[in-house]
């Protein structure tokens, strides 16, 4: 298992993404950050903290559970149902989806369906800490912490203090290496 991001790398990446979000949206008005469980949720909260520190305005965050919108229901053991907690309306807002790793794109496809069931945002953007490639759908991120070229058999693990006790991004070699 090889560490590819230290805690300080993650902090710097999130700070840069926050600046890009502000630049891309000309401020943080009408912004809503929605974290995708599990690790997208604390990452969204951290991003909101950085945005508030820069702009002096609190940005609403929420949790977007996508388990019920997946296209692989029936191919895996039944997932647990999480709770979507979005206390503000997404109607006509700019929704930034936040996730730890962008891989096949299928989670984000589910997330797009889940968001549009909550309302009609003005636009939806995507921020991820890691883009590891191997997309199976025409989906791309607007904000990327680190592009990480990987082989299919490799495994990318993101650890965050809030759920795992420490911060770090790791690559594991899979079968055949």
């Amino acid at each position: 298992m090889r560490q590819v991001m230290e805690p300080s790398d993650i902090t710097r990446a999130l700070r840069r993404i926050a600046h890009e979000i502000i630049e891309g949206n000309k401020g943080v008005d009408d912004l809503v950050l929605l974290g995708i469980p599990t690790r997208g949720v604390p990452l969204a909260e951290r991003l909101a903290g950085v945005l508030e520190a820069i702009e002096g305005v609190a940005v609403p965050t929420g949790i977007l559970d996508v388990a019920l919108y997946r296209d692989d229901v029936g191919r895996n053991p039944t997932p647990n149902v999480g709770s979507t907690e979005v206390s503000t309306s997404v109607e006509d807002k700019t929704v930034v989806l936040v996730d730890d790793v962008l891989y096949t794109g299928r989670t984000i496809r589910s997330a797009l369906d889940a968001v549009t069931d909550l309302g009609r945002p003005a636009r939806i953007q995507l921020a991820v800490l890691i883009d590891r490639g191997h997309r199976e759908l025409p989906i791309r991120a607007d904000y990327v912490g680190r592009n990480l070229p990987t082989a299919l058999a490799q495994r990318v693990t993101v650890r965050v203090v809030e759920t795992d006790g420490d911060d770090g991004v790791f690559i594991e070699q899979g079968e055949g290496f």
Binding site: A67, L68, Y69, R70, V73, T84, D113, D117, L118, G119
Partner: peptide, 11 residues
């Protein structure tokens, strides 16, 4: 889910 404006999911 049942409390949402659209109380239906495609699961």
């Amino acid at each position: 889910v049942l409390d949402r404006p659209i109380p239906k999911v495609p699961a």
